[in-house]
């Protein structure tokens, strides 16, 4: 039986990927960003998850304005890094886990989630930067990945509550997969940042840290109730990405144990947040 063994939350700032690709991680600006992932890299080297369900958003890479899926699950065999305007990132292709992905997709649809199934797409920094942060720069990614792309670009994105419920449904789906697999769920994006308009550059440490507290706590109710307008006002226009963390949190169940926490202002325009959580049954 497949098991969800841990949840990871992390920012997915493109500049973090560029810093790694261009070997700048030891520079004073970048060093404290990456220092917070040292523990996590050691941890995940021991954990060796077979599959990561990687919740992220596409940043106008795989999906243009022709088609905007709210929840899209990648059921393909492999995904190439997208060319976001400066050529694809020099990282390995991402290997899918089509058996588990299709199982989850089918289960979610029966569970009344209106999933869009994707068989071919390129994956952008939203997916590859978390991989680089957690796994470093291997020749080949050590885990298979099920991409779960959430629309947080065109309004409205799904509610925080809906994201949480999707996480719960993913947990039920994983549990009913017969093969013995160590599965992690990652929620990516955030934390506070605004990439547009005169208010660009907004950072809200207090709010972000309250959110990290709530994520590490056993009471999800307060998280589920955060409205889109609150994310927008308090965390900048791109802080809305944090709804994706709730999919991961919902998948872990009621009680969690925080294993690791990292918060750093900032990378590029963004407050970097990172959590490793364990479900407590």
């Amino acid at each position: 039986m497949a098991r969800i063994t841990a949840g990871v939350a992390t920012s997915h700032v493109p500049a973090i990927g560029a810093a790694m690709d261009l070997v700048k991680t030891a520079e004073p600006y970048w060093q404290p960003v990456f220092a917070g992932y040292d523990w996590s890299r050691r941890w995940i080297a021991q954990e060796k998850p077979d599959v990561v369900i990687l919740v992220y958003n596409d940043h106008a890479s795989a999906f243009d304005m022709k088609i905007i899926p709210t929840f899209a699950i990648g059921c393909g065999e492999r995904y190439k890094p997208a060319d976001e305007g400066w050529g694809p990132r020099p990282v390995p292709d991402v290997e899918g886990h089509a058996d588990l992905a299709w199982h989850i997709a089918q289960s979610l649809i029966l569970d009344e989630f209106d999933m869009t199934i994707i068989n071919e797409m390129d994956v952008d920094h939203g997916l590859t930067v978390p991989m680089s942060l957690m796994f470093g720069q291997p020749e080949q990614w050590p885990s298979k990945v099920i991409p779960l792309a959430v629309n947080v670009v065109t309004y409205p994105p799904p509610s925080g509550n809906r994201c949480w419920l999707l996480g719960e449904a993913i947990a039920r789906a994983v549990e009913s997969f017969p093969e013995d697999l160590n599965v992690q769920v990652w929620g990516t994006g955030g934390m506070s940042h605004q990439l547009q308009g005169p208010r660009a550059g907004l950072i809200n440490k207090e709010w972000d840290n309250r959110f990290l507290n709530l994520m590490s706590d056993d009471d999800g109710e307060a998280l589920r109730a955060i409205s889109h307008i609150e994310y927008l006002r308090e965390t900048g226009s791109e802080g809305i990405e944090m709804v994706m963390w709730l999919i991961m949190r919902g998948a872990l169940g009621k009680k969690v144990r925080p294993l690791h926490r990292h918060y750093h202002v900032l990378a590029s325009n963004t407050a970097v947040g990172h959590l490793v959580l364990e479900p407590v049954s």
Binding site: A15, A60, G85, G201
Partner: peptide
């Protein structure tokens, strides 16, 4: 939308940090 427009400033060789600043 900024994520679409990012393809324009990326083609110019600008980072998000550089491009975003121009709007402030």
């Amino acid at each position: 939308n900024i994520y679409f427009l990012a393809k324009v400033f990326s083609t110019d060789g600008l980072s998000f940090l550089q491009a975003v600043g121009t709007m402030t």
